[in-house]
Write a protein that binds this DNA or RNA. Structure first.
Lengths: 348, 348
DNA sequence: CATCGATGTGGCAGCGCTGCCAATCCGGAT
DNA sequence: ATCCGGATTGGCAGCGCTGCCACATCGATG
């Protein structure tokens, strides 16, 4: 391959050589080529300040001729504020975070901002490290997930002076901007729904709650609301791994072996619930007759199951977009509760 | 919220004030505080060059006292190469791309690089724009998806002189580094598998092939191999939307209405196939007795269905990691074919 | 006792761009 | 012809850091 030899690229080969090794084109080169001053080129390229139509044409021609690409590193250093937003998410495996990213990057793009993404693997120490790393790019703002951070992270965030948006949770004090919904209330609503439907032997299948604080809040809300309805959890199964279809399937299987007379299962999210549904299908357990299932997140896949999954739809994409816009426009610190929607489905 | 009032943060409040409005701490401040030269601070912070243990301690104490965060914008501008890799993916909706990101960011982190991500929505013009945008950060390398780019993108990539890795496809000429597997061969293998199992009335359910070139290659390989086996597609249904569970479910429904005697369905990927499976479950079509199903990608969810999905497992995470490592270490242009694995499953 | 290399250390010129300010130009008003 | 104010333009000092070079310092060596 290094030899190439595919004729389709013969024409480009020359361009390639041009690019490699040669000193990169700078704004000064463009200025010389267009026979104008550097500041004029800068003004034209940013459409900022005033310049004549003729000058614009000259500069643009020179840019095209030289193939100039502005150096944003230099631009950002010279100007005061960067047009960068750092985004910190715990995982890329769970589709909710790509959803959040999708909303945020779309909004950011509109505002002319770029995003840098970092992943923490649900580890608070790693979060501290990546926050430090992102701050060293002097971003205009930072989007982080959840309200729980270790003290080092909080200190860095506050000391940096950059705007911070905390996402997907409103159950607790925030540092600056908070956009999300109440996980606790979602858990409560789920419990009330199941209790209201007459289920009495309700089990919980979840993943690692020490790492996923939002899942822990749903769990707490669920238990409390169950208690308020005069019920208690008939059993629970927590897998040590992150949430997954597999964890849901095996978790339900394990729990049923221990508590056979369960009549409903509350899962820490839709992935887990889908796994549970697969278990029921594979073992001929009728849903919701023999066992009701309830999830969380409102993923598309749940809606399309033969029986739509009972779950709670969360506005993840909107949360990302809202946070991004708030950071870009820079208003005061606020809490935006986007709420959630209970989807009755057909599995509970 | 802007008033705060939650006691948990009272201690930090002061730190917050410190951060806001105050001129950011620079390396020169640290040097003054530690009573050493700027270059000494720089050397200590990068553990580069020589300095005494005493000096290191002095500098580190000063850094801690002032809460100094190095400015990488300035650092990158001053030094020659950046430690940034740009990653261009078509979508965040399809889990394969977060998988790719996961592999890449993990490997990048190990090598001490940071990534900047951009999304094209499967649009070649948008790809050209985001490539330009990423190049303006003067990255050490770029990871892009697929081998098909418009001429503007190719020109920019070549002219920039940065290393480029093209991912998830090896069916065609690459620009520099290519890491992936043959989509064409995957399509062929799928067709041979279905034909070998005795299916004769085989249909295709896919999404927009003009945008997703790799899906188009699988489709072409599938048709060709079917032809070589003396068969032809009994029918096909292409939805205009991106691939999704919903598109698969409705696509299969539509196709079956038109071609009722289908005995196998080949889907453009596992999401689509899962949708098809849901359709079969909902309508009591036995799988694979009445209808066989075949997917692509080897997602976890397919493995966990009551009957494991017949599909092709692709090494997406490894592709991301391999590409990242090759870019960081900077070897010669190569093509790395990671291959794929046919999962027989139980649906075909 | 001069000389030497190894080790620490500081000074300072850029990296490529933006922001400020001063200079210049132009058309119309005086 | 002269003057004025706005539009247009160029010069240049940084932004905060790194890389290079020069300058100690010091024990070991001839």
């Amino acid at each position: 391959m290094d030899e190439g030899g595919n004729e389709a690229f013969a024409a480009d080969e020359e361009t390639l050589r041009e690019g490699i090794g040669r000193r990169p084109i700078t704004l000064a080169d463009v200025a010389r080529e267009a026979r104008v001053g550097e500041s004029t080129v800068s003004r034209v390229l940013r459409s900022h300040g005033s310049f004549s139509e003729k000058t614009r044409a000259r500069v643009e021609a020179a840019v095209a001729r030289l193939g100039y690409v502005p150096n944003r590193i230099a631009g950002t250093l010279a100007s005061t504020g960067s047009r960068l937003i750092g985004i910190v998410i715990p995982s890329l495996t769970n589709i909710v975070f790509p959803d959040l990213l999708r909303g945020a990057t779309a909004a950011l793009e509109q505002e002319g901002f770029q995003s840098v993404i970092a992943v923490t693997d649900y580890d608070q120490d790693k979060e501290e490290a990546v926050v430090g790393s992102l701050l060293s790019w002097r971003p205009a703002g930072l989007i982080v997930t959840g309200l729980e951070h270790n003290s080092g992270t909080r200190r860095r965030l506050l000391a940096s002076g950059v705007r911070v948006a905390e996402l997907l949770d409103v159950d607790g004090p925030g540092l600056d901007i908070v956009v999300g919904y109440s996980n606790r209330a979602a858990g409560e609503a789920s419990a009330r729904h199941l209790a209201g439907r007459g289920y009495r032997r309700i089990g919980y299948i979840g993943h690692d709650l020490t790492k996923d604080k939002r899942a822990a809040k749903r769990y707490a809300g669920f238990r409390d609301a169950l208690g308020a309805a005069g019920l208690a959890l008939a059993g629970e199964e927590r897998v040590a791994s992150p949430s997954s279809v597999e964890a849901g399937r095996h978790g339900l299987e394990t729990l049923l072996a221990r508590v056979p007379d369960l009549d409903a299962a509350y899962f820490s999210n839709d992935d887990m619930a889908l796994g549970g549904y697969f278990h029921c299908l594979a073992h001929g357990l009728s849903v919701p007759g023999r066992l009701a299932l309830f999830g969380y997140n409102g993923l598309d896949v749940g809606r399309l199951m033969p029986q739509p999954l009972a779950t709670i739809r969360t506005p993840r994409v909107e949360a990302g977009a809202t946070a991004a816009r708030l950071l870009c426009t820079g208003g005061p610190a606020t809490v935006v509760d986007l709420g959630f929607e209970l989807i009755e489905g057909a599995t509970a």
